[in-house]
Design a protein around this nucleic acid. Structure first.
Lengths: 189, 189
DNA sequence: TAAGTCATGTAAAAAGTTACATGATTCT
DNA sequence: AGAATCATGTAACTTTTTACATGACTTA
């Protein structure tokens, strides 16, 4: 069982869905912190089914191709429940921008400033996107986004982290750009 | 050229080193944001050499196995310089704790609290580690950690990001634990 | 005497990406 | 007429991890 399996089970714990449907949902809420391609997802669904964690029913549709609707078995639900609280191995630290930063001292400062400004922009855009979704949840009638037993709380919690992350990242990019600009000025003088 | 190649070049741009040496240095400064195993690093060094980005000299040692000391060629330096300011593809968003969080609504709250408390601890430890290194740099005689053309600035910049990241992550873990505790209390009543 | 450090690798398996492949319907 | 959406996959390749393999010297 790889993390992707739990990503898929996490979606199916909320509602039965087709493979195509799962792929869409892997983009929007889960895609913020976990990613996979269709070419990995389709075979993985077959494996999950072979392992007994999910089952499918083929649904014929008028005017559209047939689809396979997957739903979680009791075994799937149990596996997910267990994994959620299982200890983690130290996270896979991978941030290509940090890797670039480590060698930024030999870059042309003006090009580097552009890079960090562009990254700042990207993180500000994501921040706005997350904040919009969070605001919608906070403003909704039923306040179950604060009830830990509710799926909406889980989604809300990941958003909170996303918001802090993007805000911090954007701020740091701005600091980097400013530092590099000062450095370029000094070099020119 | 995969990012790991630039991680290795980033180290060799500072000083010539043996493979073993590079592996150590991949742990301490670069390991904070990029990771690779020896079994990937050794073959990768051979590939970098075949491509003309690095060369090695075998150094015999008394009482120790021979070692290969690698140094960067001009081509390697040029490749690194270019890559540093090359645009990035959207980052590989992978955080297993967020994936767990997405399904935390069906977990046992008390076990979940433990998980987040443990994670908070882990991030606080890293925070302390980064802060210690940053404080050492800030207190040092030559203040080149603020001069963008200096390798030490590059390392300092990554540390600044690490500090903000760990602090934010630890805070969020604490919020999660608190939310889950309240939820567990309510369930018990 | 046992564990740790220095030193370099290979083999096999797993995970993930890119490209290929098809085809009907609906919207602009 | 062309692009987008619904719908499911396979093949080949690249990247990464895990396990295997060796051996001398140093420190507790």
């Amino acid at each position: 069982m790889i993390p992707l399996d739990y990503a898929l089970l996490g979606l199916l714990a909320r509602a039965p869905r087709s493979g195509y449907d799962l792929i869409q949902h892997m983009e929007e809420p889960i895609g913020f912190f976990w990613h996979a391609r269709r070419s990995q997802i389709y075979p993985e669904l077959a494996r999950l089914e072979a392992a007994g964690y999910i089952t499918h029913t083929t649904v014929a549709q008028r005017d559209r191709p047939d689809k396979k609707v997957y739903e979680m078995t009791e075994a799937g639900r149990a596996a997910l429940r267990e994994w959620v609280v299982a200890p983690l191995r130290p996270p896979a630290d991978r941030d290509e921008l940090m890797l670039k930063t480590y060698s930024v001292w030999l870059a042309d400062p003006e090009q580097a400033v552009e890079l960090f400004r562009a990254q700042e922009q990207l993180h500000l855009e994501r921040l706005a996107q997350y904040e919009a979704i969070a605001a919608r949840m906070e403003g909704s009638a039923e306040a179950d986004h604060l009830r830990p037993g509710a799926p909406r709380f889980a989604a809300y919690a990941t958003l909170r982290r996303g918001i802090a992350y993007e805000r911090g990242y954007a701020e740091w990019c701005r600091w980097m750009a400013a530092m590099l600009e000062d450095g370029a000025d000094e070099q020119r003088r």
